[in-house]
């Protein structure tokens, strides 16, 4: 399976689309940093965990769109034509599907590495801020639920109909840029930029990074539902191999 993983990575990442998408992600992240985050969210420092969380939350829609876009590779008509060959091999469809998801997750991690790298460069070069630890918790709260939910919902949508993936992309755009706000904001942008306003200021003037139970539950729900959808998608992979 290592070989399959290697080839899947190569197919996904070593092409002009991914490089273009990487560029788009990077450019957008830089706009967000220099356009929004530089002011700091909810009157906190631009390098507060709140601002950093908002940065990740604002860039996630584009990153999730990229992941969904990569998923279309696996559900495109062209891919279906190759499936008549791969479907006749003895490979375990569940493991095969997992390996492919692993390749997409790797693509996500590369994108995230770019986003993190850009933000650290931004903080260091413009604001002379060199710490990393305050960013770990917001990153953990934003990134895994986004990835798992995108993979889960994307796989399921793709298996039902590739057109649904585009509908999902549209939904991501609407939710990501229209915003739901509150604790249940899927990307957390509305939460990070509003919740700290209700908190008392700490010693340095910024409210401490304490999160509400609602938000933590919401993150867990997204992670859980995403995981569930992912398992359903994998289950559908097994079924597909034996029906018309």
């Amino acid at each position: 399976m290592n070989k399959i993983f290697k080839y899947e990575l190569r197919r996904l990442l070593w092409n002009k689309f991914f490089i273009g998408l990487l560029l788009i992600n990077g450019l957008y992240a830089w706009f967000v940093l220099t356009g929004d985050i530089i002011a700091g969210v909810a009157y906190t420092a631009p390098f507060s965990p709140w601002s950093f969380g908002a940065y990740l939350a604002k860039t996630m829609p584009i990153t999730v769109l990229t992941v969904l876009f990569l998923l279309t590779f696996y559900y495109a008509k062209k891919e279906k034509r190759v499936e008549v060959l791969t479907g006749a091999t003895p490979v375990n469809p569940v493991r095969y599907s997992l390996v492919r998801s692993g390749a997409i997750a790797t693509a996500f991690l590369i994108l995230v590495a770019l986003l993190l790298g850009l933000s650290l460069y931004f903080y260091a070069s413009i604001l002379d801020y060199w710490h990393v630890t305050p960013f770990i918790l917001p990153a953990l709260l934003v990134l895994p639920p986004c990835l798992i939910f995108a993979l889960g919902a994307g796989h399921l949508a793709g298996r039902l109909h590739v057109g649904l993936l585009y509908v999902l992309m549209l939904a991501v755009l609407l939710v990501g840029f229209g915003g739901i706000g509150g604790a249940f904001d899927p990307f957390g942008g509305g939460y990070f930029s509003v919740y700290p306003l209700s908190l008392p200021a700490g010693a340095d003037g910024d409210p401490a990074f304490t999160l509400s139970a609602g938000f933590l539950i919401a993150r867990a729900v997204y992670l859980g539902v995403g995981g569930g959808l992912f398992l359903m998608g994998i289950g559908a992979a097994r079924k597909k191999a034996t029906t018309a």
Partner: peptide, 12 residues
Amino acid sequence: ELAGLLYAVCVY
């Protein structure tokens, strides 16, 4: 889809 994404970037 890629053209759509790039178009969205231009709109942005």
